[in-house]
Simulated scan of single mutants.
Amino acid sequence: MHPDAKTRTELEAAAVSFVDGTFFTPDELARSRLLATIAEMAAGAGHELNSPLTVISGRAQMLLGPAEDPEVRRSLQVIIDKAHECSGIVSELMDFARPRPPQLADVDAAALLVEVRNAWLQQRRMPASQLRTEAPGPAAQPAAVRADRAQLASVLNELISNAADALPAEGGTITLRCGPAAVDDAVELVVADNGCGMSPATLQRAFDPFFSHRRAGRGRGLGLARALRIVEAHGGKIWLESRPGEGTTAHVLLPRGGGQAESRAGT
């Protein structure tokens, strides 16, 4: 390769693009555009599937009413249940494809981490020692982020869910923390686990829609892709660090809030 051409290639690889108030590397920009394309395809597919599913469910319910044969009734109920299950998948596709615009407010990130942790401990019966939060140091500034509280909570829940799946059957720890980021006017939220970690190949595809390394039936591979779309809609970034046998750390970088933070966490 000619020296000038090599230099130009290196410069292009290192370049960043400024889109909608956020800096993206070429790889990040390409991934974002790919996600947008796949999302549009998913939205179209979801719209086309909704109508026939409604007809199938409706007709099955009509037939179920007068049916007397127990085997026929069981079969019709299976059709209805599976149609509803498919409708849930379509709803998940649509939620990924066209998430609602975030309703931004100043959110106390540390309080939200505590709130999400408490919900996990209550609903999932996870031992308190397995899911812990690290409070910011006394000298740290309040970690308020400009975010949609419900959407940010859904991102944290997805990251914690992935971390919980990676933990060994006995033991293992998930740690939640937040604080000022190295980047000015930003706050970093972290979900770290000491579970099985990911191979480089899995890590590279972790945010790809419909990709999942979980066993069949455990998910459709949209969780991290949806989290990525939500974070980018906030003008933020999300990335993973992982090594096999050493666990995974998820980083979420969001714009710092500027006013009174909204806090609902319990003690």
Rank of each mutant, 00 (worst) to 15 (best):
M1C: 13
K6E: 09
K6R: 15
K6H: 07
E10I: 08
E10H: 12
A14V: 05
V16C: 09
T22I: 06
F24K: 12
P26G: 15
A39M: 10
M41H: 11
H47K: 15
H47S: 14
S51A: 09
S51M: 03
S51I: 04
T54Y: 00
S57T: 12
L63N: 07
L64P: 02
A67S: 06
E68V: 14
S75L: 13
L76Q: 14
D81M: 09
A83N: 02
C86R: 15
G88P: 01
S91A: 10
L93N: 07
M94R: 13
R98T: 14
P101H: 13
P102W: 07
Q103T: 15
V107F: 08
L112W: 04
L113S: 03
V114S: 10
W120Q: 04
Q123L: 02
P127S: 03
A128N: 12
S129V: 01
L131E: 01
G137V: 05
A140G: 05
R146F: 03
A153D: 02
V155L: 09
I160Y: 00
I160Q: 00
A164L: 08
A164S: 13
A166S: 06
A169R: 15
E170F: 11
E170A: 15
T173E: 02
T173W: 00
R177Q: 06
C178F: 06
E188G: 09
L189K: 03
V190N: 05
V190A: 06
V191A: 04
A192K: 12
G197L: 01
S199L: 03
S199P: 01
S199A: 14
Q204I: 06
R205S: 07
R205M: 08
A206D: 01
F211E: 02
R214S: 07
A216M: 02
A216I: 01
G221R: 03
G223F: 01
L224G: 03
A225Y: 00
R226Y: 06
V231R: 05
V231S: 06
E232N: 11
A233M: 12
G235S: 09
G235T: 11
S242K: 11
T248K: 01
T249Q: 05
T249D: 00
A250E: 03
A250I: 07
V252L: 13
P255E: 13
R256N: 09
E262V: 13
S263N: 09
T267S: 12
